[in-house]
């Protein structure tokens, strides 16, 4: 019971530090709630909302002249970018996670009595691939989008590659962490049967995580839909391009439609993902 006051003091200290950070950051971003309720701002917001209503549901906007320039096509394209992007990311993340999980490369039951040389080279591969994955992850998808649009030109393919690279970094690290958290005794039981390392990984370690990997992949796909929706801002295809165009051309009724479409897309992916996860059990 004697330690309670010191615990309380530590928490008081943390709260003070937190409050100071909050105030300083607020000053840096010129936080000013009064601006929101100022009469001119209110009028402008109201005008903006009014000019956006009703949403533009005309056939020429939804379907377009050649189908490929309509909003519906952009929605389909966004979905397609997220699916191919996530698929590519999984294909790269699986081998990358195997090469960067310490339990696969140099630690645990697979390396009982392994040579020093084997352990050192395993650790090198592990560290190298981890760094590579960190880099892929640290650069946001939209920045990868700018790079790929510059290199390959405008269009959804640049968006696919941007999502694939960034999500390889995310999923690769995630899968590697799962592999490192597998039960070592289960792997040991497979290894001591006389299995090779690769066999022990395939039949001892990987089956322990397949269900988790599948469910996180679906979750990540949900996230890529939201990323895909803004990739169009940098010309990498999808619905983002429509959002950008309508803002630039002051077509607020069309903007409303596009925003509703993004919202619908996110709801749809939420629902789909939860169905898939439920079926994975």
């Amino acid at each position: 019971m004697g330690e309670l006051p010191s615990v309380r003091r530590r928490w008081q200290g943390r709260l003070v530090v937190g409050a100071v950070c909050l105030v300083v950051s607020g000053w840096i971003v010129s936080f000013d709630p009064a601006k929101l309720v100022a009469p001119t701002a209110r009028q402008q917001l109201l005008a903006f909302v009014q000019s956006g209503l009703p949403p533009d549901l005309s056939r020429s906007y939804l379907v377009g002249r050649t189908v490929r320039d309509g909003l519906l096509w952009a929605i389909v394209e966004t979905l397609a970018i997220s699916i191919v992007g996530t698929g590519l990311a999984v294909c790269c993340a699986v081998p990358a996670s195997l090469l960067s999980a310490s339990s696969v490369t140099h630690e645990g039951p697979l390396y009982v009595g392994a040579s020093e040389w084997r352990l050192v080279s395993g650790r090198l591969v592990h560290t190298g691939v981890r760094w590579l994955l960190s880099f892929c992850r640290a650069v946001p998808a939209i920045v990868w989008g700018v790079l790929f649009v510059t290199a390959l030109g405008l269009g959804p393919f640049a968006g696919v590659l941007a999502l694939a690279v960034h999500n390889t970094g995310v999923l690769g690290k995630l899968f590697a962490d799962f592999l490192e958290e597998t039960d070592p005794l289960t792997t040991e039981a497979v290894a001591t049967v006389g299995a090779s390392r690769l066999q022990a990984v395939c039949h001892g370690m990987v089956p322990q995580i397949t269900a988790t990997v599948a469910s996180y992949t679906v979750y990540r796909w949900e996230c890529t839909i939201r990323s895909a929706a803004v990739l169009g801002f940098v010309g990498a295809g999808g619905i983002g391009y429509h959002l950008l165009l309508t803002v630039q051309r002051l077509q607020y009724q069309r903007l409303t439609t596009a925003i509703i479409a993004v919202f619908g897309l996110v709801l749809l992916s939420d629902w789909l993902a939860s169905r898939v996860r439920a079926s994975l059990g």
Binding site: D183, L185, T186, A189, T192, H203, P207, Q208
Partner: peptide, 14 residues
Amino acid sequence: LQLAYQGTTLVGHR
């Protein structure tokens, strides 16, 4: 030497 590990070391999903 073949050891029958305890049943908790099986792969549950298989």
